[in-house]
């Protein structure tokens, strides 16, 4: 029985828009152990921190505010649910979330290439742009989910343990519950935007290489190098072009009034970097000869 053909040459029932839909790709990635483990770890981390605070006692020995605003925020991490969630975000924003986002975005195309299933997807045919689009959408959704799960669990666990108190900060005094929750969401949004750089770089490397570890590791490595260069104050205003220069700008949401200058510049920098990386990835993938 011959397959009925359509006018554009495709087999009956074939539509490019229906190939590799978001839901299919979501299920494809959900079945992987690394997705489940990562989301599970992100769920457990606030609980681990909570246990650590319990074991460490009320005032864990460490001295004074001479270490700067980080130490000050750590001291008041146990004063309420919002503070606890803020502390969890603070300690995980610089490295853990970077690794998680790099993992989701850098592993997606490279692992298909390493399994050999990429060429069969392309032969379905899934249009190249659509393949990248689907994979990127799902990776970003998982990254966002990790972010939200982390914050939500921290908020829930912190509130159950320490109570629903206003947010205490060192310089801006206390912020009422409602506005503090909004500010926390604002911090989350800014982190999501600034992690787009990592996502873009990991995705770009994923399109270039067959080794998922290369893509993930490369993105994390470049993020670390950028942080190191940012510490060298002799570079002066040249540091503005580094992608991690504004990674702490979300602290401005804890002042009163809210300082948005750093966040605005950070968002601009992140969007520029992300668009360059994603554009390059699309261009390269659309024109390359797929041999894996």
């Amino acid at each position: 029985m011959a397959v009925r053909a359509q006018a554009d040459g495709g087999a009956a029932g074939y539509r490019p828009e229906a190939t590799l839909t978001f839901v299919t790709e979501l299920r494809r990635q959900a079945s992987r152990r690394r997705t489940q483990l990562t989301l599970g770890f992100v769920l457990l981390l606030p609980l681990i921190i909570l246990v650590a605070f319990e074991l460490g006692g009320s005032n864990g020995g460490g001295g004074g505010g001479s270490r700067g605003q980080f130490a000050a925020l750590a001291d008041i991490a146990t004063s309420g649910g919002l503070n606890f969630a803020l502390f969890t975000l603070l300690v995980s924003a610089s490295f853990l979330l970077v690794v998680v986002v790099a993992l989701f975005c850098g592993d997606t195309v490279a692992s298909e290439a390493s399994w050999g299933s990429l060429r069969y997807l392309l032969a379905i045919p899934v249009p190249r742009g659509r393949l990248l689009g689907s994979k990127l959408q799902v990776s970003l959704v998982y990254s966002l989910a990790a972010l939200v799960i982390l914050t939500g669990t921290a908020l829930l666990a912190g509130t159950l343990r320490y109570g629903w108190h206003p947010l205490r900060t060192t310089f801006a005094g206390e912020i009422a519950n409602g506005p503090a929750l909004l500010r926390l969401l604002g911090i989350l949004a800014y982190l999501a935007v600034s992690l787009l750089v990592v996502a873009g770089l990991a995705f770009l490397l994923s399109v270039f290489t067959d080794a998922p570890l290369g893509a993930v590791g490369g993105a994390v490595l470049l993020q670390i190098v950028s942080s190191i260069l940012d510490q060298i104050t002799a570079l002066g205003s040249l540091r503005v072009i580094l992608p991690t220069h504004y990674s702490d700008a979300w602290l401005g949401l804890l002042s009163s009034p809210i300082q948005t200058d750093g966040m605005v510049k950070g968002a601009i920098s992140a969007l520029l970097y992300a668009s360059v990386f994603f554009g390059w990835a699309w261009y390269h993938f659309a024109h390359k000869d797929v041999v894996s």
């Binding site: 040459g9 074939y14 399994w115």
Partner: peptide
């Protein structure tokens, strides 16, 4: 690359590729 007519074609090239 990406032509719809590829859907009328089934292929096995350079070995199997499955999600392990």
């Amino acid at each position: 690359p990406g032509a719809p007519v590829l859907s009328r074609l089934g292929a096995l090239v350079e070995g199997p590729g499955f999600l392990p």
